[in-house]
Design a protein around this nucleic acid. Sequence first.
DNA 1: AGGTCAATCTAAATCGATATAGGCTCATCT
DNA 2: AGATGAGCCTATATCGATTTAGATTGACCT
Lengths: 346, 346
Amino acid sequence: MHENKVPGDRNAPPERKAKPTLKTIAKLSGLAVPTVSRALNDAPDIGSETKKLIRKIADEIGYVPNRAGVRLRTGRTNVISLVMSTEHDNHTARLISSVAGGLQGTRFHLNVTPYAPADDIMKPIRYIVETESADAIILNQIEPEDPRIAYLMERGFPFATHGRSNWFDQHPYYDFDNEAYGRHAIDLLHARGRKHVAVVAPPLRQSYALHLVAGLQARAKANGQTLFILDQVNSDNPSEDIIAATTDHLTRHPETDAFVTASTTAALAVLAGVEGRGLTVGQQIDLFAKEAVPFLKMVRADILTMAESVGSAGDFLAKAAIQAIKEPDLPPMQHLEVPVAPASDG
Amino acid sequence: MHENKVPGDRNAPPERKAKPTLKTIAKLSGLAVPTVSRALNDAPDIGSETKKLIRKIADEIGYVPNRAGVRLRTGRTNVISLVMSTEHDNHTARLISSVAGGLQGTRFHLNVTPYAPADDIMKPIRYIVETESADAIILNQIEPEDPRIAYLMERGFPFATHGRSNWFDQHPYYDFDNEAYGRHAIDLLHARGRKHVAVVAPPLRQSYALHLVAGLQARAKANGQTLFILDQVNSDNPSEDIIAATTDHLTRHPETDAFVTASTTAALAVLAGVEGRGLTVGQQIDLFAKEAVPFLKMVRADILTMAESVGSAGDFLAKAAIQAIKEPDLPPMQHLEVPVAPASDG
DNA sequence: AGGTCAATCTAAATCGATATAGGCTCATCT
DNA sequence: AGATGAGCCTATATCGATTTAGATTGACCT
């Protein structure tokens, strides 16, 4: 019933760059396949010269064992499973669990590959594509000219993104309309009489940060408000840095009567900085924050907030990825989540 | 060089309960293996009676296709990979990325299986074990008589836990010493002259909550302090519920001069509740909070905190899981993280 | 009656890696 | 000299599922 038209499917003719297998090494070395296998596994009955030769070839052509082959023969999966509850409401947990939820009932499993900010952003992507260890990839933290997206598009590898790149019209994505969010925020502050707005923005290399700032700027200009983007810190920085930057900014620009931030953490840090200067939020100064989970509103009614729900993103991304796998010729699934405007609207 | 003594390994004699394969169904039905395959895939050249029969048998014996077999033959991995940064400091992201970090350089991959609180806690475990889709499992949110642990121990399936069960001496674990944390907290409050302590505890079905409460109770008794565990809410509840419970408790027990909580969220909610009653933290009342990431201290110096680092947990758990796989006969790797006592100590 | 064809099913090959048994080549021993 | 054996490599079978080609059966047609 389901479409099984894998293009070029008669007994797997060597497509692409023909991933090297033991057979490849066997041919190159003139040895038998089992010999190659045993050499790479350092078996005692293989000559040391042979081992050296085989290892050299393997390195050169970048051989990586096919996991399915190993697993089928040995029963070893080479996988460790982290089974975790997603009871705690945070961005990461929500995204993961909502993607997993979207995969429920399909034949697909979810594999999470984290990378530290310091790591090469391309490494996990290349690994997955080259070893074909997934049918599709879901990415977040998108940048305008994201090299991962360029790489995947070039190869025709199925993927979906949480956020838009410059090529967003060509690939599946789910995004929150941060530009609209920025407009709403500024308009609301304008309606409350605020004239000098300071912003602790997300890292500006990321698309959503640029969208947010664009929205803020457009409306601030229209409203005749002053907009100041703090350039020493971003909303992902440690609280102490944000507090310091907030204090510093207030010293140099005492006319500031509003702050906009893009995360709960940053909002609380700004709050601390503002209060440290003896100012009261809601009186001399306003604080507007975007939150993944409605939270600030609960503890501090004086903070202005607008929530971005993450829950539906994962579900959509899961479906978009599956469509990219199964129906690569259909137009990509795309969704731009429009923020719900708060009470006072322009 | 590495130990390869898989017990009973001469051409895979049918061990355990012999997972059903196409061959099993073929034998039971008297049909050929390819026929069974095509029937299950709803190929047009299989009779409808045959299909019905084969599907019935497959259902009865609980046939699930072997992923390695499918992947090897078709190239389909049936995996969707979520490549995500762990830039945001939260508990989930930290645990995942630190486990992944501990797996760096090994042959193991990490697979994250989230489950919603409402789901059957055993379902993902059973699936992994029955389909052999991992070599080991890492669990968190451990309960004293956790059925997952009983299941895994009974089957001799390798695993490691973040937290201790009642059988903790028999399995690998990493845990934070919440009992010591509880003692320190109470002692510190005692040193500050606090006599009536209220606690917003984690859900009491979980081991770490019980440890925490035990530590609090032991010391409160020794110090002659009153201890009150709020039983309407736990630290995972929504902020508004915690605020309400805090307010309610203060109304009924106005003598309360300290709160202890186990999460940042709960601490902020309690803070809101306390301030809502016109009390000032650090003056009439103290607030002591446990945090995964030092955070509250940054924004509110008047809150007492003690941090639990999650980073080292993942690394340890990864290694513990690998040892459980490779050296099942060695004593399990175990670690109890001792909290760093704050300045004032008993 | 002989032939054609559709409907169903079976046989064999294959994906990649590895375990097991067997074969060949020397060197060494009696 | 023939035998023994260590050292090193090859051949074959196998894990589970799927694909392709080929075989069987019976119905239907001229």
